[in-house]
């Protein structure tokens, strides 16, 4: 129990001294902090008073009260992808930001869940990575891949955030233009729970750690869209016989047209159009064309090769919505 004796003595000792009050009215440094006062901070408070009596003026300084700030566990997760990330044969890269919104240093466990209600397909989580060079772009070989069993952020100082990449591949059943979402959840390693849950001795500086309003767990969704391409090959033939009609008689020339149509929002790479020369016919030298442009028969600088063994035209990478047409002719023996 405190009596007034101690303050009384103190007051007597500094009677008439107004410097105490003046020094305490000096501006205090305002340490505004988005996530609150740092864990371990001591909040100290002292008041002063001045007064007059018939015997003169007096001043008094109060006792000091101190409370210690405990560690608050809070986290925020947001997606940095403004549009759905594109998944082709290469994985989609979803970008999230994980922020320590608590007031003490904390690491957060990460979990990516591809099963989200409303998904047209559920992607396959290939890997999680941290944006080591903090450029917001996934750089293979540069950004740290997280290993299974250690999916976590490094220890983040209060208010600090880290960008997390989630690499998602398409499942077999996904069709072009279908969309899907992946949920990234970050949870404080010290613990989670309803706000106010306390972890004794787990706080910064040996104090308690207390779960904040975020429950020390947060998540965010990021979307991806499948970008695939399909190939349809259509073969047609026209016949011109020596008599100017279209009868398949010996000596007639059959012109084959092979239309390679790539559809979808994606593209196909490494495309070749290959055909053989039908039995009973002979390749017409110099008849090979790609999109009406003549190709030489020899294996040389152009895209095509033609001869008795067949034709082979290299198309390479073709974007969706493009049709490439290969034409060659044979003569009926």
């Amino acid at each position: 129990m405190n009596t007034y004796l101690t303050p009384l003595r103190r007051a007597a000792g500094i009677a008439g001294c107004s410097i105490v009050a003046l020094s305490l009215t000096a501006p205090l440094a305002q340490t505004a902090h988005a996530t609150g006062v740092l864990a371990g901070t001591l909040i100290e408070n002292t008041a002063t008073a001045t007064y007059e009596t018939g015997a003169g003026t007096g001043s008094v300084t109060s006792n000091k009260v101190t409370v210690k700030v405990d560690e608050l566990l809070d986290v925020a997760v947001s997606t940095l992808s403004t549009a759905p990330a594109t998944a082709t044969s290469a994985p989609a890269v979803l970008v999230y930001s994980v922020t320590n919104s608590g007031n003490g240093p904390e690491a957060f466990n990460l979990a990516a869940d591809p099963k989200v209600s409303g998904n047209a397909f559920d992607g396959t989580i290939k890997s999680l990575a941290l944006d080591s060079n903090n450029n917001g772009v996934y750089d293979p070989g540069v950004d740290t891949l997280l290993t299974a069993g250690a999916l976590a952020t490094p220890v983040l100082a209060p208010d600090k955030s880290v960008k997390v990449f989630v690499l998602v591949t398409l499942p077999a059943g996904a069709a072009d233009a279908q969309t899907s979402q992946v949920r990234l959840t970050a949870t404080a390693q010290t613990g989670t729970g309803t706000p106010g849950t306390s972890f004794t001795g787990k706080g910064e500086g040996g104090g308690d750690a207390v779960v904040g309003l975020t429950t020390a767990s947060a998540n965010s969704l990021a979307g991806l869209v499948a970008s695939l391409a399909n190939l349809t090959l259509t073969k047609s033939a026209t016949i011109l016989d020596p008599f100017g009609t279209a009868k398949p008689v010996p000596g007639a020339v059959v012109t084959y047209s092979l239309a390679a149509k790539v559809s979808g929002s994606g593209s196909l790479d490494g495309l070749h159009v290959i055909d053989t020369i039908p039995d009973g016919t002979t390749y017409v030298p110099g008849s090979l064309k790609l999109d009406a442009a003549a190709l030489t028969d020899a294996a040389d600088g152009d895209a095509g090769v033609g001869g008795a063994s067949g034709i082979d035209v290299t198309l390479g990478k073709i974007a969706g919505g493009t049709t490439k047409t290969v034409v060659f002719a044979v003569k009926i023996n």
């Binding site: 205090l28 305002q30 006062v37 909040i43 002292t46 008041a47 008073a49 001045t50 009596t53």
Partner: peptide
Amino acid sequence: AVNYVMTNPLPSA
């Protein structure tokens, strides 16, 4: 005691 003026600087936190 007259004109008793109590002043409390708010702790910055």
